[in-house]
Amino acid sequence: MANSKVKYFLYHILVGGFAILLLYPVIWLLVSSFKESNDIFVTAGSLIPNPFTLVNYPQGWEGFGGYGFGTFIKNTIVFVFWMLVGHLISCSLIAFGFARLKFVGRGFWFAIMLVTLMLPYEVVMIPQYIIFSELGWLNSLKPLVVPAFFGHPFFIFLLVQFIRTIPRELDEAATIDGANTFQIFYKVILPLIVPALATTAIFTFYWTWDNLLGPVLYLNSPDKYTVSMALNMFLSNETVSNWGAMFAMSMVTLVPVFVIFFIFQRYVVEGISTTGLK
């Protein structure tokens, strides 16, 4: 009896202690954002800000180049919005086609889609850049969001797997009731795949929010910067070593990620466990 209690205790010391150790850097970042910039590395070992200050947040929020951090957040939200619209519409249509319709070449295109899942972006990066610059799309969101309207293999695959679990009898019943293919998609399947669409939306949000390479390639004026670009610029201007402001804005960019995760945790965990996303 006592032995099992000791075991229980040791288990939580080990597993819990290791978890705290892993999260320590994030806690340190949070705490440091409440220290004065000059103190951060002098008192790096201490988790209690002394003196406690909020000055870094308004200072970081001022941004740079005449654009406040609010602008960068607004830009990122617009970016996320178009990615969501693009992925949700295109991936659900495409997934329905693959999962439910029989047509010549279905196996071929499905295989192609699975292959593109593993294709390094670098192979298409340069010609895409040239195409988008010929179209006059540089320094706009278009090169980043337009491809989203043509599907994303990860989410198509996720939705196909999900649709395949829905009994076909539902489609057949709707057909007998006189529904055409589009109505089956819209009225029968779409309402049933909401959980998988939620997973798609959440991961689209994460990947867009964190996307750095795309904005680095295509956005070059500060009024269009996303938060990841803005943080990158903070780092480049580090000579003034305003650590506090940089840490504060780093925390600001992490908070939405945490909030979305805690609200929609179930979809995140299920999405990863079933498809191995990320």
Binding site: V26, L29, G45, S250, L254, V269
Partner: peptide, 30 residues
């Protein structure tokens, strides 16, 4: 615990975490 262990993966791709990593490994870092 599952949540705690997953959090680094959740935020790991972000610029904020790269900045954090840069600073915890600095000469006077933790």
């Amino acid at each position: 615990y599952r949540t705690m262990y997953y959090l680094p993966s959740l935020i790991g791709g972000s610029v904020a975490v790269a900045i954090m990593w840069r600073n915890i490994f600095g000469d006077a870092g933790i």
